[in-house]
Write a protein that binds this DNA or RNA. Sequence first.
DNA 1: CGTTGATTTGATAACAGTCAAGTTCCGTGG
DNA 2: CCACGGAACTTGACTGTTATCAAATCAACG
Lengths: 260, 260
Amino acid sequence: MQVAAVCEPRHDAPRSSHVVPIHVVPRTAATRYAVPRCSTCAMRAICMPPELTSDELSRLDTLICSTRSIKRGDALYRAGDAFQSIYAIRAGSFKTVVMHRDGREHVTGFQIAGDSLGFDGIGEGKQNCDAIALEDSVVCIIPFAQLEAICREMKPMQHHIYQMMSSEIVRESSQMMLLGTMSAEQRVATFLLNLSKRFKARGFSAAEFHLRMTREEIGCFLGMKLETVSRMFSKFQRERLVKANGKTIRIEDAEGLARV
Amino acid sequence: MQVAAVCEPRHDAPRSSHVVPIHVVPRTAATRYAVPRCSTCAMRAICMPPELTSDELSRLDTLICSTRSIKRGDALYRAGDAFQSIYAIRAGSFKTVVMHRDGREHVTGFQIAGDSLGFDGIGEGKQNCDAIALEDSVVCIIPFAQLEAICREMKPMQHHIYQMMSSEIVRESSQMMLLGTMSAEQRVATFLLNLSKRFKARGFSAAEFHLRMTREEIGCFLGMKLETVSRMFSKFQRERLVKANGKTIRIEDAEGLARV
DNA sequence: CGTTGATTTGATAACAGTCAAGTTCCGTGG
DNA sequence: CCACGGAACTTGACTGTTATCAAATCAACG
């Protein structure tokens, strides 16, 4: 898994009732080159409803029949492309970028391994944003028509898709609240804590991780200029809340960061 | 229809391929007090996929077995309430409000007749925000478990629900872009044009309408203070783009407003 | 090991927030 | 129907946060 090179996997992964820990898949030829299989995927706990029978799982294996590798900086899809598939990130990370007609860009989200991409394309039948790889990445391709067919037959899967889309709506609501009500300082603090939480949920260190995005991309996501992002990192460093060494972030005082 | 008192219905409603015009339902006892029926609902074109057979439509009538009236200022639901149903607004309007733990509030959206509410509750199994009526309103109650069952059997309905949820994601992306990249002036202009478009799609005047929300609520939605909203209205008035008389808005120069 | 893009930091400017005062609107009750 | 009171709105003066512009430093990569 590429992501393993980015963030040290933790073997004392949390075992809360919500987050089923993932296990690092050995880098055997099978996991790297064979037909992808949900039944053996490390991200299954994040991608799939937990209550599937092994029978149902093997049916899903027939759904996802291909993966795709995207080089850093390349687009998985572009706004306006015909919508056909949902994507699940196997390894790597992406940003989603919407563009206004006047050329203004805005980053609507950062997605890491285990996250999904493309739900915003269903409504119009075409992609609503660009999905750009922040590092060399691999996605599972999930043809949406087939997914719909499966959802008509497998109730847990149907519900799971509704839940994923609903969670996306909730996530975006939180981001609107962040953009609408928080100071630059609070936005950056919230951003770091959110990343930390997501890495932790995937079994990586919550305290130390590498940012795959630039200050400019962070600023574009948080509604501020890159200089302001940089200043906030420096400020947190002075206050001993985080240690920021370029793209390496170490959260030294999560509680303090949350109080900002 | 309550909304008719607010915005004059237009009988020369647009007939684009996307927006099927709605017809104003006569205020008979049947439409006001009888069991609600999708098959005769004025909002059907907005709520429902267009290609349903009359057979399928009458099946839907069994799904929506009740409506609910909400007085101005009252909540349809509150954040934390158990999620059970989706709501379709028959008449009136709402705001959805998310609250941060520190008490900070943010308005995530304004919904008018024909819009739906509650999709953000599916993910967690509980409501994510408060839905507050901006005027006396009526909603159709759509039990979600039943809706899911119908979606497993009726492909067009299944797809329609995915489309509605996806559109909600897209709408929120646009709002994030607005909050993240636009000046106060542009935000208010965009807000007015968006409302105008939605009224037009429902057969009301695109040029003149009544705001059901306060300046404070608008500000809370657009990420600015109520004084700033007021100043922008005054500015647009000076520039002859808009005539704002309290809550009555007349858009005098839509192109000019779009250029802001 | 140089070139280029990314990041940091400082100085200044602009936009929106805050505080305050006055006005208008609207619902309620007489 | 009118008068009253409170909420909503407008406007002005001042303040503060963040943007802008600029320059220096750092880091990645061919």
